[in-house]
Amino acid sequence: MKFHKLYSDADGESHWETVDVALQERSFAPPAQAIEISEAEPVQSVLFLRLRSGWDEPIHPTPVAQKLVCMAGQVRVTASDGEARDIGVGDVWHMEDKSGKGHHTVVTSEEDFEAVIVQHE
């Protein structure tokens, strides 16, 4: 299992990284069988988001560290270093570029982009 991580370096440039999620088999919901599961991450809040088809925003940093889970549609997100990634259904995007140049997001699908956002702070 993997997710896309967008972060900013000390010079304020944003970059992409692919992160492998470590899973460990353990009992999670006894008496159910053991399952493969990651470590828990503390979260602050959960929100639902819709960006209408054709939506195109100016470049900006993320306001807080957060993960976005795409439920419908697709966006193209371009880091300030020029690398772009397409985020589509089932993709997880971790945003950590809270300072610096930020990123640009545009809805590339004909359908609206819908997601769940899990904020860490």
Rank of each mutant, 00 (worst) to 15 (best):
S99L: 10
R76I: 14
A40S: 13
A34C: 04
G82C: 12
R52D: 11
V19G: 06
Q24D: 08
I37D: 03
A72F: 00
A40D: 06
E110F: 01
E39T: 10
I117R: 01
L6A: 08
V89R: 05
E96W: 04
I87D: 02
A72E: 15
G82A: 13
V106L: 07
A65Q: 14
R52L: 11
A65K: 14
T18L: 13
S99K: 10
V107N: 03
E13A: 07
S45R: 11
K101H: 11
G82Y: 10
I35H: 03
H103F: 04
E114A: 02
V106R: 15
H15K: 15
H104E: 03
V116Q: 07
C70D: 04
L68M: 13
S8C: 14
V77E: 05
H4D: 09
T105P: 01
P63M: 03
I35R: 06
Q44C: 05
S99P: 00
M71R: 14
S27H: 08
G12K: 09
E83P: 01
W55M: 11
V19E: 14
D86Y: 07
V77A: 09
V106P: 10
P30M: 00
V92N: 10
R85A: 05
Q33I: 02
R76H: 03
P42Y: 02
K67Q: 06
T18I: 14
W93Q: 11
R50M: 09
R26N: 06
S53V: 10
H94F: 15
L6K: 05
D11H: 12
D86W: 05
F48V: 07
Q119N: 13
K98T: 15
E41A: 10
T108A: 02
T18R: 09
S14I: 09
P31E: 03
I37E: 07
E39Q: 14
I35D: 04
R76K: 12
V69Q: 02
A10L: 12
L47I: 08
E111V: 15
P58C: 05
L23I: 12
W93M: 15
V64S: 07
V46D: 00
P58N: 13
M71C: 09
M1E: 07
